[in-house]
Nucleic acid binder design. Structure first.
Lengths: 188, 188
DNA sequence: ACGTAACCACACCGGTCGGTATACTCGCAG
DNA sequence: CTGCGAGTATACCGACCGGTGTGGTTACGT
């Protein structure tokens, strides 16, 4: 699943850009092939269907986001996760690709639905782990997750760019109420 | 905008059901007309375009949700708003129609984008007002809004049906940390 | 009696949808 | 030198897309 041919890589790259910016249904296979500088034939030789390409797009995106998150979290406090989110959203102005994909394919038996669920489950575990390492109860991790998803939605669909900062403020209140460390993370 | 002909009403009703369940782009005008038991001609005579019908769908849905929220909030505490959300999501299992619509049309100049922004702004003001009436600072209202959006996303795309209850628990912690009333709302 | 708004049935338009087929070129390994 | 995987180019398929046009039928207000 990881070793693709050159033309295959160009196709996922083009599809990823187009799917994220315009939505899944709004982007046809013809446009994907043309943007990638290859042909529809190659697309179907490599991936078999548009649905499979959509699933791969989301898998790749999940990997990308997780590596971005993990790398930028080094040396940051728990509440600093919202600064990483703000950093991420500076370039990714169309919000959460998984929430967007679910809006289009949710409720069907699309192969990408599994990827969406896995991503959200991964994030939940990440936040719970973050809380555990800080000596906080799991409920605090769940709360962080809620704030994170809310901030992502409101920063994009809600048109409130300061939402991640507001989420950070809320998280710090919750953290300090738990009687833990003063969370002196570097912001920005 | 409010007084529609009988066939027009049937069309918005059919379109609303179909758009919410399957997404906007996934539903064609032919299907809408057929489901409504009318014709495409009537659809275009009443609304002019599919885009206008989409905008009207979201406006109607906003009205419906607000009346549902306001009615079910009577006699409830601040944190009870998450019980209302859980009640709402019991029937509306495809999540927030506005977030879903934004996923499909965000970034374009679609007439529905304004409706989406207005809905999110209305909710923000509602939560801030809720906090004010309880003698709490506006930041608490913003926090409630973040938890509300996060709970909606996680209950649907995230596959975590208990998300509204978890959001309520987080809200109660924040409320009690503010040294206010003990928030003895009836749940359910 | 007349005009008109609302509606239905149906045919039509150019374009695009996801997906397939045919035929050809290239590089490389046996 | 042969076979094969990867790639290109292009034509094609039925179905559907959003949107329009024509013509005819009610019901109602004047």
């Amino acid at each position: 699943m990881d070793t693709l041919t050159p033309a295959g890589e160009k196709l996922v790259a083009a599809a990823s850009r187009l799917f994220y910016r315009h939505g899944i249904r709004a982007v046809g296979v013809d446009l994907i092939a043309e943007t990638a500088g290859t042909t529809k034939k190659t697309l179907y030789d490599r991936f078999g269907s548009k649905d499979a390409l959509v699933a791969l797009y989301l898998e790749r995106r999940a990997e990308y986001w997780r590596s971005f998150l993990l790398e930028h979290m080094r040396g940051r406090s728990v509440a600093g996760v919202f600064d990483v989110l703000a950093l991420w959203l500076r370039d990714q102005d169309r919000g959460c690709a998984f929430v967007n994909a679910y809006a289009e394919i949710g409720g069907t038996d699309h192969p990408a639905e599994r990827v969406i669920r896995e991503e959200k489950a991964w994030m939940r575990e990440y936040f719970v782990g973050l809380a555990r390492e800080a000596g906080l109860p799991p409920e605090l991790g769940v709360e962080l997750h809620l704030l994170y998803e809310g901030a992502t939605v409101l920063a994009t669909a809600g048109g409130v760019p300061e939402a991640p900062a507001q989420a950070r403020a809320a998280a710090e209140r919750a953290l300090s109420a738990c009687g833990s460390a003063p969370t002196t993370g570097s912001a920005g």
